[in-house]
Structure formats: C-alpha cells, structure tokens
Amino acid sequence: MPDAAPDPVYHAPPAATLLRTPLDLLDAIYDRRSGLTHLVGEPVPAILDALAAGPASAADLMQRLADDYAIEGELAALRARLAELAALGLVDARAL
C-alpha cells in the first residue's frame, strides 16, 4: 500500500459479503464481490470479526483485539496485516 494516507480508517465489508468455512488449520473465506477464496490463519479471522463491530483505526483495533479477543501484539505488525488485507480487498482503507 502507498503511504498516501498514513493513518487510514479501516472498514469491514458489508455483512454477508464474506462466507467463512473453518478448516482445521486455516479458515477458507469466500468473498462474494471478488469471487476470490482466501485461506487465512490467525490473527486474520479475529481482525475481521473485530472490525465487523465498526470502522476503526489501527490503534483502535489494537485495543478491541486486546479487550475482546485477548490478542496482544505490535501495532506495526497489525498495520502490516491490515495493509495486506486491504490489498486483498478484504478491508477498505479510507483516508480520514
């Protein structure tokens, strides 16, 4: 992702856009808009669930993950995951 928007707000796709099949090691996610299937591991499912509660900046999301999912980590690492998810179209990064 370009650095044009240094601290974007991340939006989850509308409800029912993503179909999810939990497999043993990974989750298979089907995106109804793109027709793409993604095989993802933690923390991606948790990030998507946490974001479904409403748009959030990386810092806000960090807090949500810690409070609701007991997932701790580096903010930089979370930003990197979010950038990957935005590149896949699974989240939408919007400038403030």
Partner: peptide, 29 residues
C-alpha cells in the same frame, strides 16, 4: 491430509472452481 491442505490442493486440481464462484466454494467446503 489436513482439511486445509486438501482444500487448497483441490482448488488447484479443479478446472472450474473459480468460475463457479459461491456454489463451487460451498460444494468444495
């Protein structure tokens, strides 16, 4: 085989998985 490995390999072994979209995903799952 783990289910996730099996899922991934079958998407590659299928010639029309992508074209079938959601129904292919459901069937394969």
């Amino acid at each position: 085989l783990a289910k996730s490995e099996n899922f991934m390999r079958l998407t590659q072994a299928s010639t029309n998985y992508v074209a079938l979209g959601e129904r292919g995903f459901g069937t394969l799952s």
